[in-house]
Write a protein that binds this DNA or RNA. Structure first.
Lengths: 202, 202
DNA sequence: CGAAGTGATGTGACTCAGAAACATCACCCT
DNA sequence: AGGGTGATGTTTCTGAGTCACATCACTTCG
């Protein structure tokens, strides 16, 4: 379906990431991004609803992938198992080439509150979609919400480790490890902190 | 310390809430808000960093209150108990007059993605502050993060019920009920959904 | 093979958010 | 009475985001 120069959208994303990394996000103008992609400001806004969104391109897809994988999990799976299946499937959609992209994106987000805000929104939306997918499996609302939150947190944590320079483990392995870690953390919500526990009589 | 007409900030908040409720958030201009408060656009931006923020005025205070209450909880308290103490203290700072305000605010947020995004960010910041307060009590990172998330969710849920027209219970009672509900939900993360459980052999 | 159609892009003009430099006013203190 | 201080107003500017309209490439059909 491509006509003109193909991949206008991808060119915009690439241009945005490069320019923002080089000059900083606030110093980068939408016109500059469009220019570098060989397009105009108007066209930019035809592809993305606002300046922030170009850096989060494709993330709405994650909700769909996660939700579908959860729906496809075996009926007898527990909420956590369904979530594990979901984020595992999501993890397999990430190719190694996306590591560099991810590194740059995380660096940008860390440096700009505007982007942190959008990231928080994306997190919430992803968790919501996951919650709905679990509720469709008859998981009660509260449990669904928490399981979803655990899953999204596990995935983000895994992603953060995956893009680190020396990372050796696959994103898939990291997501599973992350979820396990959070499961055990959840089991300790009613346990006094170690420092206190150590001072209790044996 | 008030000089001119006092309460400029409060006047801006009130004007913003009224105008946005009447005309819708996107149709309301910063200049209009300032005008109605008897001020100018520049002064608006001296009090609030952006247009969205005027509707979330005072919420940064919540982080401080919550964190301080958690720090003040008894040393032997479990993470959840510390969080319960925190949100209970926070709940007691809400006077009944704030119910109407809360109603209008929630209605606005529900109707505007811009405001949903800011609300998600506020949620994340509140959870972060809570997490830090728990980590200061030697609670391990993962557990702290989840306990914080539970607390913030419980508070939001309680707030949503508190502002409902027919609500009778105090915000304090509602936060405690909300947290209890989430605690039991957390205990079911590894339990298959009811529909499935019912079909298992007794 | 050429004309109409379709979808993506460009142009120009506009509104509003938000920042900055500078002027002004009310109040306080001495 | 006069200077200091802090809050406000004035003006101007940049950039985000919207819109109406024109244009171009490519397709399809007569």
């Amino acid at each position: 379906m491509a006509r003109w120069e193909p991949n206008a959208r991808a060119r915009l994303v690439r241009a945005a990431l490069e320019l923002c990394t080089a000059q900083g996000y606030p110093a980068t103008t939408v016109a500059q991004i469009a220019d570098r992609a060989g397009l105009t400001k108007t066209t930019f806004f035809r592809h993305f609803p606002d300046k922030r969104e170009v850096l989060f391109a494709g993330q709405d897809e994650h909700s769909r992938i996660l939700a579908e994988a959860i729906a496809a999990a075996p009926v007898e799976a527990t909420p956590i198992e369904a979530v594990a299946a979901g984020i595992s499937t999501l993890a397999t959609t990430f190719t190694p080439e996306r590591r560099e992209f991810g590194r740059m994106l995380i660096a940008l987000i860390d440096a700009n509150d505007d982007l942190k805000e959008r990231a928080a929104y994306k997190h919430a939306r992803l968790a919501e979609a996951t919650t709905e997918a679990l509720k469709a499996r008859e998981v009660p609302t509260g449990t669904a919400g928490l399981a979803a939150e655990l899953g999204v947190r596990a995935f983000h944590e895994a992603f953060a480790r995956w893009i680190e320079p020396g990372a050796e483990r696959s994103l898939l392995a990291l997501t599973q490890a992350g979820l396990d870690r959070l499961r055990t953390a959840a089991a300790q919500l009613d346990t006094p902190a170690p420092a206190e526990r150590a001072s209790l009589p044996l």
